[in-house]
Write a protein that binds this DNA or RNA. Structure first.
Lengths: 137, 137, 137, 137
DNA sequence: GTGGTCTAGACCACA
DNA sequence: GTGGTCTAGACCACG
């Protein structure tokens, strides 16, 4: 999987990495248990400092998306907990997005069509769910 | 309309103000053409530096949500263009949200239910649309 | 409140800081809402790099112990959620400690006496509990 | 006795082994004088490098939990000294745990209940005590 | 002035 | 060779 950094973005580099890996997991571009590049390798590949990659990995680890291990390096978690609620922050964000869409005159159906498009990209229901391994908020 | 600042939020204060005004417009708590408080008045009301309120208003003006008028102060725009596309940033944000929801095991229907809830809060179709006055991206 | 760094300790500096602040909150040496030193000030005070202090603060923030804010700097959270369960890691740690105590011949009563001693140092029941603001594991 | 390695744990492998053996002794799953598997056997059994097992055994030996004997291999110590004090590190750890429990709103009685549970799993008073054979700190 | 991010380069424990 | 920690110094957005 390739990480592509947006140049002038206001979202920090470490978070861009984190975001793209999360999307990758959701869409099956990163398989459960798959090994991720080492901190140093990824840093060199995308031309940034390894501490920044480290920061991204730490965040992903702490959120429960990946597992780091001296023996095996960094790997995508095998199974994810089923937490059928968005975080309050995500809900607020969605609320905000709907408001802006509404002002643009985007109808409910148009909005939902976009949601469906993204759901179509991600893996089928239950693909990642398994034994209880809670994600942190 | 009351602006409520979140205490420990990562969202900058000026953006919190901007966000709440946008939601207010979408949900009819701020009517088209309605006069907003002056920078200084709002700053005093919520107990922050007026530079910060100014920044929020500048952003809202630049995005086309409000209009500043020498005679009448700041007012909500009367009519908004119909731009039936989210901004690329918003789309990417939605993509990201769907991905994270997917990993949590949230189904398409559960997600859409949330969207519907927020659509129910906002004003009916076409409420704000009128003569062509494009929003800036 | 003074932070004292253990020199040859194998526990990382940023975690020592985090630990001492947590104990400080529990024992009332840091009051709810109290302002903590700035990143730079604390770094200088204990003679370490400010990124290390930053790391400690980030951790505390993410665990819900403190609130960082550009306006007000860093402050101890006002109210903590009541989560009447230790984390699985903490339970395992306690299990381990009891096992080692047992081998040393320390009786249950001797062990509990130590627990009581530490409980006596901390603030009374409900001192920090309030509206729901969940701690992260 | 079976050693089970936690996959994504922050606890180093050699320490996980050491910990489980200590708990095993305390709870009678490893009897005084019982022979432990050889380094190579255990390494193969749990699928890790034998250097790592060696490290665990060295630590256990240094702490006085096991005895290596040219003729008989590695055995659990027969009798342990009565040292009715936790190590300073363990005390500090307990202090830390009580502080965090306190902030979560866990009462003294709830905490002690957990301690009792672990004491119930371990062997009765004096089970391992005998002639003076001091543990190293 | 504040927290937050990033760099380049070093060192360490673990495996 | 791996992840993790720390440093010294720089820059940025927010307020």
């Amino acid at each position: 999987m390739v990480i592509i950094l947006q140049d002038g973005s206001d979202v920090p580099v470490f978070k861009q990495i984190r975001n793209q890996i999360v999307v990758g997991i959701s869409e099956g571009k990163l398989l459960p248990g798959e090994k991720l590049p080492t901190v140093r390798a990824l840093a060199e590949e995308i031309g940034i400092n390894s501490m920044t990659v480290n920061k991204a990995y730490q965040l992903l680890k702490q959120e429960g998306y990946i597992i780091t291990d001296k023996r095996n390096g960094v790997r995508v978690r095998e199974k994810f907990a089923s937490i059928p609620e968005l975080s309050p922050e995500a809900k607020e964000q969605l609320h905000q997005m709907v408001s802006e869409a509404r002002i643009r005159g985007i109808t409910r159906d148009e909005f939902v069509a976009l949601v469906d498009e993204y759901y179509a990209s991600s893996m089928p229901d239950g693909y990642l769910q398994g034994e209880y391994t809670p994600l942190l908020e």
